[in-house]
């Protein structure tokens, strides 16, 4: 498990997630830092959906909802046509560069799937080394693993049409904001 000083784990995560075609950005964790980073990440987009979190302080999400492009209570039609979804990730996996999103609070599954851009907020201390550690009974994943979870490694992709194409049914871009 990562400790606040465990920079090698965070570095490995950042390197592997980047290899998996995610964009990784290290930011501060104050509400205003996070809000500013999300504004930058969604620059030029006109409709955003924010899903509530479990681990980050609620004030982060309150701050995010003040971004003018955020749709306060999206209908399913709005979800289907929004430009970006913003969710929390309950864990990161360094070796594979993956993030883990627990379903449950409304919108989190939709916000990590239906929009062309997924912006994920990952606290740096919630990074484990390898995928199987998510299943450790006493590990970071323990509480979340009681729920429906999704392990996300880069944007959606396919090689079925010949070359590797990023951006299929799921998000075309994955932007991970690493909260340090």
């Amino acid at each position: 498990m990562a400790t606040p000083g465990n920079t090698s784990l965070v570095d490995l995560f950042a390197a592997r997630a980047t290899e998996a075609a995610a964009k990784v950005e290290r930011i501060g964790r104050s509400d205003s830092d996070v809000r500013a980073a999300v504004v930058r990440a969604t620059d030029g987009l006109s409709s955003l959906v924010v899903a509530d979190g479990d681990f980050l302080p609620p004030s982060v999400f309150t701050a995010l909802r003040t971004i003018p492009q955020v749709i306060p209570k999206p209908t399913d039609d709005q979800l289907a046509s929004a430009d970006a979804g913003i969710t929390e990730a309950f864990a990161g996996v360094a070796r594979s560069g993956s993030i883990c999103v627990a379903m449950g609070p409304p919108l989190r599954s939709a916000a990590s799937l239906l929009m062309p851009l997924h912006v994920a907020l990952l606290p740096a201390e919630r990074i484990v080394l390898r995928p199987r550690e998510l299943f450790d009974a006493s590990g970071i994943g323990a509480a979340a693993m009681q729920r429906n979870i999704i392990i996300i490694t880069g944007p959606s992709a396919t090689a079925d049409m010949g070359p590797l194409v990023r951006g299929v049914h799921g998000p075309h871009r994955l932007h991970i904001l690493l909260l340090e």
Partner: peptide, 13 residues
């Protein structure tokens, strides 16, 4: 490598 998505679901969601 891990593919983009691995879901662990206990449906119904």
């Amino acid at each position: 490598k891990l593919t983009s998505y691995t879901s662990f679901l206990r449906p119904p969601l």
